[in-house]
């Protein structure tokens, strides 16, 4: 395999970060960060509700800023940096969401599905291709199926017309050996670029991102200060520094990047993502990082141990999008606790 010398960095701080602030990012914050990202020459800036376009809901959380305003604001402040969005079929539809995003001038659409359900993305990908919008396929919660099955689902995305496929370690469950196996399987089976999106529950986000790159991944996601769901993502300014030290070209201006991260800490973050004890449990249990705020809130409400909730969610193989089931699990644990006492 040819050694990777150049990586396309995509920055979902304004999308994944929304999970960390219960989707409360304001238009003003979005504008500020976009300007900083533009200055740092970050290639792709992704904005939106944590679960992407059309996902503002009681289920996942209502967004403070609606999709329209988010996209317009970002569009006004991005010139050289591309404007990206995330969309999950089942949440976002073509008519209600994608057509509007197209009209508002989105550059890159990332169509995502649970790792085993790639066939849900066909029409959304087709829409983007027909409309000349760059489109990537994304497999979320990718630790839940084997490398071989992931490669098959990724191949579906390629067949539908995706121009790249990204694996998301949505639970922060991967160790570098998992990355090697899975990214390797994609590299062996796809003719399009492969990317990786890390979470930091087990402290592996940067190491896993570097491993992915060494296996041939040429698209890497990272967020300023790690601003993202649960324990956060690969910390972007660190990732860029590491890549530069390895001699990898990103096109990003390091000082600009560091300034953007400092700005994000000041203006965007409520708290700096850290690997809390609960994040460790969430990662070990293989539960979607975006659940962490819901689990904490409901555990307090029902007066139960949130660790029990995470492990039970993991045992039931609950996937991203099933936030309502946290209520059911919490209620059940509370009931069984009552019975025991």
């Amino acid at each position: 395999m040819q050694k990777v010398t150049k990586v396309l960095v995509s920055d979902p701080s304004l999308r994944d970060g929304n999970h960390a602030v219960s989707h409360q990012l304001s238009a003003d914050q979005i504008a500020k960060y976009c300007r900083a990202a533009e200055k740092a020459r970050i290639p792709i800036v992704e904005v939106g509700h944590g679960n992407g376009l059309g996902a503002s809901s009681l289920q996942v959380g209502l967004a403070k800023t609606d999709d329209d305003v988010m996209l317009r604001t970002a569009r006004e402040n991005l010139v050289n940096s591309k404007l990206g969005i995330h969309i999950i079929p089942g949440f976002g539809t073509i008519k209600r969401d994608l057509e509007r995003a197209r009209d508002l001038g989105v550059d890159v659409v990332r169509v995502a599905s649970h790792c085993s359900e790639a066939d849900l993305t066909e029409r959304h990908i087709r829409f983007c291709r027909t409309n000349g919008i760059t489109v990537f396929g994304v497999l979320m919660m990718s630790h839940m199926i084997s490398a071989q099955l992931l490669a098959e689902e990724a191949k579906k995305l390629e067949n539908y017309g995706a121009e790249a496929v990204l694996l998301m370690d949505s639970a922060g469950y991967y160790l570098p050996s998992d990355v090697t196996e899975r990214i390797g399987a994609l590299m062996d089976n796809l003719s399009i670029p492969v990317g990786f999106h890390a979470h930091n529950n087990l402290g592996m986000a940067i190491a896993n991102s570097v491993t992915a790159m060494e296996c041939g991944a040429t698209i890497l996601d990272g967020c300023s200060r790690g601003f993202g769901a649960g324990a956060g993502n690969a910390q972007l300014e660190v990732l860029v520094a590491v890549l530069h030290r390895m001699g990898i070209e990103t096109g990003i201006d390091l000082y600009g990047m560091l300034d953007a991260a400092d700005m994000a800490e000041q203006e965007l973050l409520k708290e700096i993502p850290r690997i809390s004890s609960l994040s460790v449990v969430s990662g070990l249990a293989g539960v979607f990082s975006g659940f962490s705020k819901h689990v904490q809130r409901l555990s307090t409400e029902y007066n139960i141990d949130p660790r029990d909730v995470f492990f039970e969610l993991g045992r039931r193989r609950i996937i991203a999008g099933q936030e309502d089931l946290i209520i059911e699990v919490a209620a059940e644990i509370a009931a069984s606790k009552k019975e025991q006492s």
Binding site: Q59, G90, I319, D324
Partner: peptide, 21 residues
């Protein structure tokens, strides 16, 4: 109004579940 649909691949298969908010 808003409708959301999730497909869950777990085995044994999950029963249909619907939440109204």
């Amino acid at each position: 109004t808003k409708a959301i649909l999730n497909l869950n691949p777990a085995v044994p298969c999950i029963d249909m579940q619907t939440t109204i908010f």
